[in-house]
């Protein structure tokens, strides 16, 4: 098993957001997490990536045999966890290329591997930027600065391709994308899929799941995963909303 989240309780500013969340992910799988606003979807992504403002009061997260919650943000990345940000950050003055090369080399150093040569690195940039049809000019600009919304999301997937993580978490990567950008981003994710890696797709909309076909769809509601089903569950949620699940579970608003 790659990721095992057990009874995770998380709060921020004294307010509990995740209330005993359980999730298990195996290599080769794609999991979609859906749910209404405020259910805790982005909190889950943030906690897995290591944002420090969250307080974890209970539960464990095992990532490939390591206690994920004990690792720093950078070590989680070096162990193979990747978060595609819902709102990618602009970093003026730091070039995309310099940033990625530093990242790759620090990851390699952690793993006891040699630094990547400039030549191999540039070849990798050319190869991987094609996957998301990212203009090579964007690769050499400052990180996300002046990028359109779609370019920012493509840049996230480009970084994912460069870093080649074991587990990728896509946090609302589809929000704000037009259908062409969505298709490019989804194709990119699909091309990167393998038997060894896994993906968590956090989304509001079923639309993305037409392009990235999940093995499992989870409904996150009120801090817990309340229902898990096959990909058809996403369609049902799109048509019927979330109220029927509340009724099915006998929950109040």
């Amino acid at each position: 098993m790659m990721l095992k989240i057990k009874n995770l309780h998380v709060s921020i500013d004294g307010k509990e957001i995740l209330k005993g969340l359980n999730l298990e992910i195996n290599p080769g799988e794609v999991h979609a997490i859906m749910g209404p606003n405020g259910a805790g979807k982005s909190t889950l992504a943030s906690v897995l990536a290591g944002r420090e403002e969250y307080e974890i009061s209970d539960g464990t997260v095992d990532f490939d045999g390591k206690d994920l919650l004990e690792l720093s943000t950078e070590d989680r990345a070096r162990e193979g966890l990747f978060l595609a940000f819902q709102y990618p950050i602009e970093i003026p003055g730091v070039s995309n290329i310099q940033f990625l090369r530093t990242a790759l080399n620090e990851i390699r150093e952690y793993r006891g591997q040699e630094q990547i040569s400039a030549k191999d690195f540039m070849a990798l940039v050319r190869e991987k930027s094609k996957i998301v049809e990212l203009d090579s000019k964007l690769a050499s600009r400052s990180v996300n600065e002046g990028f359109s919304g779609g370019e920012k999301k493509r840049n996230e997937i480009f970084q994912m391709a460069m870093i080649d993580p074991k587990l990728a978490i896509l946090d609302e990567t589809d929000s704000g994308l037009d259908i062409d950008a969505l298709r490019i981003v989804a194709n990119g994710v699909n091309k990167l899929k393998s038997k060894e890696n896994a993906t968590i797709v956090i989304t509001h909309y079923q639309r993305l799941l037409d392009y990235i076909i999940p093995d499992f769809v989870h409904v996150l509601y009120n801090g817990k995963i309340v229902k898990t089903g096959p990909k058809e569950l996403a369609l049902e949620l799109e048509e019927r909303g979330y109220d029927w699940i509340k009724e099915e579970l006998g929950m109040e608003n």
Partner: peptide, 15 residues
């Protein structure tokens, strides 16, 4: 900018 620092760290770069 702590957000930018977090972004870089999330890609494997040390603080």
């Amino acid at each position: 900018d702590e957000e930018a620092i977090f972004y870089l760290k999330s890609r494997g770069i040390s603080y």
